[in-house]
Simulated assay, not measured.
Amino acid sequence: MKKLALSVLISSLLATNAFANDNTEVASSSDHLGATVQSEQTGNNQQLTEAELAEMQKKLNNPLADLWLLFTQNDYTSFKAADGNDYTMNSFKFQPVMSFDMTENYNLILRPTLQHSSIEAPGMDRESGLGDSGVLAALGPKTDINGWIIGGGVTSMFPTAKEESMTLMGADQTAVGPALIALNIGEVNTYGAVIQHFSGIGSSNNVDEHGKEEDINLTDIQYVYRHKIGPATQIGFAPNIQVDWNKEGSDRFSIPVGIGIDTITKIGKLPVRLGIEAYHYIEQNDQFGPDYGIRIFAIPVVPKLF
């Protein structure tokens, strides 16, 4: 039963799904937009113009843009099990995104993740508390190259969860690996992917069918499509495919499809992106896997501190 409970955590505890994103005018508009955000924070409470909203939307669509963000996201997921019962999980993530000028042409993005999770599964009562924490560090260009924004870096996850069963894959293990960001930028459409791989290091609580210690070996692929329907509004999706290489056959894969909408508004003096997305899983673990999910997110834009 413990192994079934561990599968719940694949979706909730991978804090790797916050980037979704686009722009061809990042560099040319950077200084102006930064000044706009700073002005909003220092007392100018007028509404953003249509042009400023469109510009902000483009910047928010670029995971390597020079913005500071307070990314908050809540994922509600329903699971189905072989016993015929349904189970639910809720994961709330806080991910401050910080951009630093490394050179004239490149930005360094740091995105630490803290999360609170509440989960249930066959054979276990609902557990709630602090989940694993992580850090993504990525380096990339400030402008697109032939329409593409390409970046790379290192991703990591640390077993800070309150309970062993709430850690990534239930392994209670540190995991690190490479990260790749590749997005095609357009005035109306944006598409691409954010790919991260996690390999466990150190001791793991998991064992394979032969009783041998089993390290985390997990790939997360966030595939992105956005279509602009207004200066500040877009429809699209950015779900996370997950591949557990320790499993066999189709049980390796969790594949969601869905749709969502987001828009930019102001709350007080802060420009904020608000959005909702809904997903259905077309492939999952037969014994215990996600069935559908609802994601709600809010992303305030704040001035760069340094």
Rank of each mutant, 00 (worst) to 15 (best):
S133G: 08
N246T: 04
G129R: 05
V272G: 09
V194K: 01
I221G: 03
N90L: 03
S204A: 08
I10Q: 12
E25T: 09
H280M: 07
S28P: 02
K228M: 06
H280I: 11
G34I: 12
A82H: 08
Q41G: 09
P256K: 03
S254P: 01
I261D: 05
L70S: 06
T155Q: 05
A121C: 05
D251R: 06
K162V: 01
G129Q: 03
V224T: 11
N217A: 05
S39E: 12
L136T: 07
H197T: 00
H227K: 12
G151K: 05
D125G: 06
E213P: 12
T24M: 13
A193Q: 00
P159L: 06
I216W: 01
I216Y: 02
V97L: 10
N206L: 15
D75W: 10
P303T: 08
A54V: 07
I216T: 10
V301K: 10
L305V: 15
N285L: 06
K59E: 15
N21I: 09
V272H: 07
M89T: 15
Q73N: 13
F100D: 03
I276C: 09
F92Q: 11
I149P: 00
D215L: 07
K80E: 13
I185A: 09
G43Y: 14
R252H: 01
L53T: 08
Q196H: 04
T265N: 04
L60A: 04
N184D: 02
I296Q: 07
T143L: 01
L4Y: 08
R111S: 14
E50S: 15
P141F: 01
I235D: 04
A298H: 09
Q38F: 12
L70M: 12
K58R: 15
L13Y: 03
W148D: 00
D75G: 07
N21Y: 11
A15S: 14
A137Y: 01
P63E: 10
S203N: 14
N184Q: 10
G129T: 03
V8T: 14
G192R: 00
S254W: 01
L13D: 15
V154H: 01
R111P: 04
I185R: 07
P141L: 02
F19R: 06
N23K: 09
T155K: 02
F79E: 08
T36H: 03
H32R: 13
T77K: 03
S156E: 04
H32P: 00
L53E: 09
S39W: 10
V302F: 08
S99N: 12
G293K: 14
N74M: 11
I241W: 05
Q115Y: 02
T143E: 13
N17D: 14
G84N: 11
V135I: 15
P300Q: 15
E214D: 08
V301G: 05
F100E: 06
R226M: 07
K80W: 05
D208G: 04
T143H: 02
